[in-house]
Every structure is written in structure tokens, then in C-alpha cells.
Design a protein around this nucleic acid. Structure first.
Ligand code: FES
Ligand code: FES
Lengths: 141, 141
DNA sequence: TCAATACTTGACTATTTTAGTCGGGTATAT
DNA sequence: ATATACCCGACTAAAATAGTCAAGTATTGA
């Protein structure tokens, strides 16, 4: 069970942006340098964020991206959704109308995994971008 | 973020076993048939469960596996540990003493992911095998 | 005794996912 | 004009996943 880099970088980049004034565009180049994330990768990530209206882009010299909302209003769950990252603990898909066992009934673990999924998603619903912007960067030990 | 089949099957198989009397060995063949899990795959999974003392094996005809503890005592976290499945939301490793950014300081998202990891692991600590044994198997909708 | 059952172990593999890169754009400020 | 910076689809190497396979060993019951 792990989180992919795309999602981690997306949150990291947006958190980086939220440390600066809202109005001024932040370039991906700057984010790339500050956060040590590949610029090319960031471009890919920000296209998704833009399509999902989390950021607005400004082209040309001194361009960059600006946050579309106040960091206090941006839920982590929105970022996950934009990046198309889903928490998937159940083995079945709701579309197929079949259990992970291929039968028409739920398997004996289904409700457990469903509960876990809810537990995790609730975390992302409650967490806002503003909650992690000013976190202090202690040394790793 | 998803859960792998090995862990899901491990929990499923143990939950299956916990629906039967403790003393009588349950064969993997039976579990395989009841839960629609590949027998060969189950063998691989149970070797791990055995090495971690969650089950005891009995060879030969009418052999199988028996639970080493009461389902009320078996935490999901123990099963995860046995299967070697870890919840890993941070991008860094604690061993390297470096952040996911390669620097000696934590990245701005580290504490968030750490909190999430704790949140998920707490769930597994609280959940017991007995909590899901008798769950009703409703139709998928 | 001996065949069938069922656990044991390590190696192997196809498929999928991940974590990016690459190339060739377009828009804008100075 | 030219440098900056966003835009977009396609591509790819490497890793992880989800198993299978071969070749055992131990035990029981007929
Ligand atoms: S996880 Fe949904 S049926 Fe098994
Ligand atoms: S997740 Fe630990 S330093 Fe980034």
C-alpha cells in the first residue's frame, strides 16, 4: 500500500505555491528547483491540476501558475481526484456487479475494505492544503 | 493507493478459517474452493503466515492449517506484517536519513504523510480477525 | 505397504503499473 | 525578435504484481 509520486509531488508543489502571495504566478521552474522535482514531470502534473480547476495558468515571460482558491479551501481529496489517484482497497469494482471472487455476493472481507477506504478518504476530506503549508522542516533522523 | 491481492487473500483465507472449529485443520484446497483463490497462490501466502506463527501446519491426509490464536486476538496489523505488506505514504526512507528530496531536511509534505500512515496503521491495530468473520454477504449492487 | 493427500521451497514469468522522458508545439512580455 | 514558460500526446525503461511451475517431503488411511 503506497502512494505514488505523482500525487505526492502534486501536493508538494501546491503546498510550495501556497507559501507565496496568491496573485503572483509561480513558475514550474521555481517549484522544480525548490522542491527537487523534475520540471518535465511537473508540467504533466500541472496540466491535470489545471484541467480540474485547482490552478490557473499564465503563459509567457514571468508567467506560471496561481492557485484558484485559498489554500484553506483546498481539500486534499480534490488534489487526489485531479491527479486521478483513487484509494482502492476492495478487490472488486462497483461497475462489474460482481464480487472479487467472481460471484454475485460480496466476499467475506468486502465490508472491511470498504470501511478502510472510508477511513482513509475521510482523512483526505478533512485535510486542507493550508494545514501543511507552514509545517516546520526538521532534520530527518 | 491500493492494496495488493496477497494481503487481501491472506485476510480472506484467515477469515474463512475462523468460521470453522479451531482444532480441526482446514486444507488450502477447501479454502481455495470456497473463496475462489488459486491454490498455488494460497500455498505461497500460507508459508509466510506460518513463518510468522499465525498458523500451524499439519501435513498429510486430512492435514491443513489451524489458527495459532483465537480470532479475537489476531490483529489485522499482524497479518499485514506477516505478508510483508507495509503502508508507505512517505516518499523517503527512515534508513537513508535523507528526505524524499535528497536533502537532509524533511520535505514540506513529510509530516502530512506520516500522519496519514499513522491513521491507517491505527485502523489495522484496532481491527481483529473476529471483527469480520461473521459479516453478512449481501449482494453486490 | 503404498497411494493419495497436503504442506514445502525456490525459481520463474507474463502482465501491469510507475515514474518518468521526449519532441514539438503555442502564447506572452520585454 | 527572442526568451520564457505553459501545452500536449506519445513513448519507454524499470519495477512491482500476480501469479505459475517443478520438484520435492511428511503423514494418513486402505
Ligand atoms: S472486495 Fe468486494 S467482493 Fe471482495
Ligand atoms: S516524505 Fe519524507 S522527506 Fe518527503
Amino acid at each position: 500500500m503506497k502512494l505514488n509520486t505523482k500525487t505526492r509531488y502534486a501536493v508538494m508543489a501546491l503546498a510550495d505555491m501556497s507559501n507565496f502571495p496568491r496573485k503572483k504566478p509561480v513558475s514550474l521552474r521555481d517549484i522544480s528547483l525548490r522542491q527537487s522535482i523534475s520540471l518535465l514531470y511537473l508540467e504533466q502534473i500541472f496540466l491535470k491540476l489545471k484541467k480540474n480547476n485547482l490552478v490557473k495558468s499564465i503563459r509567457g515571460t514571468n508567467g506560471g501558475y496561481i492557485l484558484n482558491k485559498d489554500p484553506k479551501e483546498i481539500k486534499l481529496s480534490e488534489i487526489f481526484l485531479a491527479i486521478d489517484e483513487k484509494v482502492k482497497t476492495v478487490g472488486c469494482t462497483k461497475e462489474s456487479k460482481k464480487g472479487c471472487n467472481g460471484k454475485s455476493t460480496k466476499c467475506i472481507t468486502h465490508d472491511l475494505w470498504d470501511e478502510l477506504e472510508l477511513h482513509i478518504n475521510t482523512f483526505f476530506e478533512k485535510k486542507k492544503l493550508s494545514d501543511l503549508a507552514k509545517i516546520n522542516q526538521n532534520k530527518i533522523q
